[in-house]
Design a protein around this nucleic acid. Structure first.
Length: 152
DNA sequence: GCCAACGTTGGC
DNA sequence: GCCAACGTTGGC
């Protein structure tokens, strides 16, 4: 079982949106960065994922979701009406992948970015590297534990 | 809203 | 294959 972190603007899809659909799966689509896509493709059913809220008032890790369906071609790439449409994608050769995820739990408190930056043992986490824009990234077992310890 | 850092595109 | 220009991300 692997562990990951995904960024999301809470106005798009927050941990509360997952909680509101607890028990149901939500597609994680619209990823349009090759490195992020490659990580999406490596996800397996049952993997655990931190949900990080970005570009908002309270920036930080808000909760945990789990992968309920591993990578499949992201339908939005074929939809001309979607902002994620990619005219270079074909059914035979899709460029982009999506996974499905469902709610596991919300953290008792949000762990702010400042606090994450102050933690030892997260050195290799792309999230806290200056200038990193990667929106899907692996989290080592050690980093996962260090982060969770912050909230007991 | 600003802007630094980044990834992608396209002309050459 | 280089690299300038452009569009986007995301913290502040």
């Amino acid at each position: 079982m692997a562990r990951w972190l995904v960024k999301t603007e809470p106005s798009e899809c927050s941990i509360d949106d997952f909680a509101a659909k607890s028990g149901a799966s939500i597609p994680w689509d619209g990823v349009r960065n090759y490195q992020a896509r490659n990580f999406l493709s490596q996800m397996s059913e049952g993997d655990e994922v931190f949900v990080y809220h970005s570009s908002c008032k309270h920036i930080g890790i808000a909760g945990v979701v789990t992968v309920t369906r591993s990578a499949y071609p992201d339908p939005s790439q074929f939809d001309p009406a979607s902002p994620y449409h990619d005219r270079k994608s074909t059914l035979e050769k899709p460029r982009w992948q999506a996974v499905d995820m469902s709610f596991v739990y919300k953290l008792p408190r949000l762990i702010p970015l400042d606090e994450l930056k102050s933690l030892p043992g997260l050195g290799d986490l792309a999230l806290i590297r200056k200038g990193s824009r990667l929106s899907v990234m692996p989290v080592s077992d050690e980093a996962w534990q260090v982060i969770l310890q912050q909230v007991g």
